[in-house]
Amino acid sequence: MSVRILFLGPLRDLAGQDDMLVEGTLDWDRLLQTVSPQVAAQLREERVNIACEGRVLADKTALMAEDGDEVALLPPVSGG
Rank of each mutant, 00 (worst) to 15 (best):
V3K: 02
L73K: 04
D29L: 08
A58C: 02
D67G: 01
L43S: 12
A65I: 12
E45R: 12
P10V: 11
E45P: 06
K60L: 06
L63R: 02
A65N: 00
L74W: 02
D59E: 11
G24Y: 03
D69K: 01
R4M: 04
V77H: 08
E23C: 01
D29Y: 09
L6H: 12
A65S: 05
G68V: 04
G68N: 05
A62Y: 00
V48L: 09
V48M: 12
L11P: 06
I5Y: 08
A58I: 03
A58D: 15
V22I: 06
D67V: 11
T25M: 08
V48S: 11
M1V: 09
G9E: 13
G80F: 12
E53Q: 14
L11S: 05
G68Y: 05
T34I: 02
S78W: 07
G79W: 09
A72F: 01
L63E: 11
E53K: 14
L14C: 04
T34H: 11
G9C: 07
L8E: 10
V39W: 15
M1L: 10
L57W: 00
T61D: 01
P75G: 15
A41Q: 15
Q33V: 00
P37W: 00
V77Y: 05
I50D: 08
R47T: 08
R4N: 06
M1N: 12
A41V: 08
T61F: 02
T25P: 06
R4W: 02
V22Q: 05
T25W: 12
Q42W: 09
R44C: 14
A62R: 07
